[in-house]
């Protein structure tokens, strides 16, 4: 595990793993989509609209999984202070935001034919919306603080504070939801899932997870390269400045 602290090792690992993860993702998603559209039955209550669930649920899962990855990387930043952990943290935020966004959009598109409106303040959707806000705030934090190391530390602590908060937000939103809406109108528990629907869903979820892993590794690789480029640019700039500094010192 410690080898992952070495950026060169991570680059070599990424070069090998990205094609494998990418291929697995493509294969599983292709099989999953085939099953979703040609094998899985329509739900007796929801009809064909149930096919939206096969992307909605994996997106929700990855929206949360990405946060777990980000929080683990945040621990890496704070405890071991390693640049690869910083890169992993920074890369996970936009990906998590993307999956959370997909979860919200598909949930809303599922809601229109089911509930007759694009958005209801359903407890689970609302919790995901707050999660999206947290992701967006973290991305804004990364973009605002210029020094990468400082940004990494600030984002790491905010990520962990968010991690503690997410279950509390979930609990309070559930409470708020039961308070304001008669539970019978919107059933908060999902529909029962049968085997013929479970397999496609599982395959889609695993495929999407490999997609996330491949994208995350690609993004981490970019961050490592960006860091090197930054470093080289600085070295070149300071090399150019050397004579001037020397002249300045000689003049003193």
């Amino acid at each position: 595990m410690l080898r992952f602290a070495n950026p060169s090792f991570v680059l070599r690992f990424a070069a090998r793993a990205i094609p494998i993860f990418g291929a697995l993702a493509a294969l599983l998603l292709a099989v999953g989509l085939y099953l979703v559209f040609f094998v899985a039955p329509a739900d007796y209550q929801q009809g064909e609209t149930v096919r939206i669930m096969y992307i909605h649920v994996p997106a929700a899962w990855l929206g949360m999984f990405a946060y777990m990855v980000m929080a683990s990387a945040a621990l890496g930043t704070l405890v071991w202070r390693h640049p690869v952990a910083d890169a992993a943290q920074k890369s996970a935020a936009p990906l998590g935001a993307m999956f959370t966004f997909v979860c919200l959009v598909t949930g809303s598109l599922w809601g229109k034919p089911m509930w007759g409106t694009y958005w209801v303040w359903d407890a689970r959707l609302t919790s995901m919306l707050v999660l999206l806000l947290i992701y967006l705030a973290l991305i804004a934090l990364w973009n605002t603080i210029e020094e990468p190391q400082r940004a990494a530390k600030a984002a790491a602590v905010m990520t962990l504070v968010g991690l503690v908060n997410i279950p509390i937000i979930k609990f309070s939103v559930d409470w708020w939801n039961t308070l304001h809406q008669p539970a019978s109108v919107f059933k908060t528990s999902g529909p029962a899932i049968y085997g013929s629907m479970l397999w496609p869903l599982l395959i889609m979820a695993v495929g999407a997870t490999f997609l996330f892993l491949a994208l995350h590794l690609m993004s981490i690789r970019n961050e490592i390269l960006r860091r090197r480029l930054d470093r080289l640019t600085r070295l070149a700039a300071s090399a150019n400045d050397m004579p001037r500094t020397a002249r300045f010192e000689a003049a003193q």
Partner: peptide, 19 residues
């Protein structure tokens, strides 16, 4: 329903491919 399903998969495809 076809419209909403197509839109869901379309938005997802755009988001993933865009990323």
């Amino acid at each position: 329903h076809a419209f909403f399903i197509a839109l869901s998969y379309g938005v997802t495809a755009i988001a993933v491919i865009g990323t």
